[in-house]
Design a protein around this nucleic acid. Structure first.
Lengths: 131, 131
DNA sequence: ATCAATGTACTAAGTATTTGATACAAAGAT
DNA sequence: ATCTTTGTATCAAATACTTAGTACATTGAT
């Protein structure tokens, strides 16, 4: 399976970050539902042609973020939303995806570049933490 | 004035990136309107306690992004939106800010972490470019 | 009890990035 | 014309990051 994960070695974003971000998005979207098994670090590393330690680092950060969970021999599985342990089938992020897409549409209509959208989001997130 | 720009040297984000992102956000929000004068690279560098070249790098990238413009002796000014050269007073990003804040609210209500919000936005932006 | 499969920890090396200093170029003021 | 102020370019050094390999720990199966 290893659904749609790929790395671009020529990118400025390091491979472990690409892997982490892609898996994070897939989980948030619901493509990787709670309980899904992620590929083993060795198999994913082999598929991507990189070292196992690189994949392991991505998994480690995802686990620290509470998105996945490692069972030693059983591999790595996706953790469900902390608040909703029962809901298995429903994609939890449909509303969030809609909000993201709406933001992209609004921003582009206003002539705001993609980079600036991210800058803005970062800035608002930071200020919402403080205030 | 140098409105509210600060750098956190202990952050993983390099100083020039912090400066670039903050100014980018301020422009998008409308705090720095078209025609506003940015502080000189030397004065801002002195305020922040860093080298002028670091600030210059941030300015350079902002100029390449089309957000600001350098006049040699006159300093650096904020460029207006490319599509709307006439509108001076109105903050062009009000709708965009609302969309950003809405996204943050929706995502947090769904239990999505701040990091994941950014990952999601990145992923959607990338896929919207391709498809 | 043993084995095999999985994630983890550690480390050394290479690579890339970032910074800060200096010197340079441009442009307006005097 | 000269000077001052501003941004720009260049470059070397330091710093940090990333990677890949190796060995280890854990856990379930046989």
């Amino acid at each position: 399976m290893s659904p749609r994960i790929s790395v671009d070695l020529s990118s400025a974003v390091p491979p472990y970050e690409q892997i982490r971000g892609q898996i994070s998005s897939l989980i948030a979207i619901g493509v990787l539902a709670a309980g899904s098994r992620l590929p083993t670090v060795r198999s994913l590393a082999a598929d991507l042609g990189i070292a196992a330690g690189t994949v392991a680092r991505a998994y480690k950060e995802l686990e620290q973020a509470g998105l996945i969970e490692s069972r030693r021999r059983n591999g790595t599985i996706v953790v469900g939303h902390p608040a909703e342990p029962g809901s298995t089938a429903a994609a939890p992020g449909a509303e969030v995806i809609a909000a993201v897409d709406g933001l992209i549409r609004t921003a582009r209509a206003a002539g705001v570049s993609d980079e600036t959208i991210i800058d803005l989001l970062r800035g608002r997130l930071a200020s919402k933490l403080e205030g």
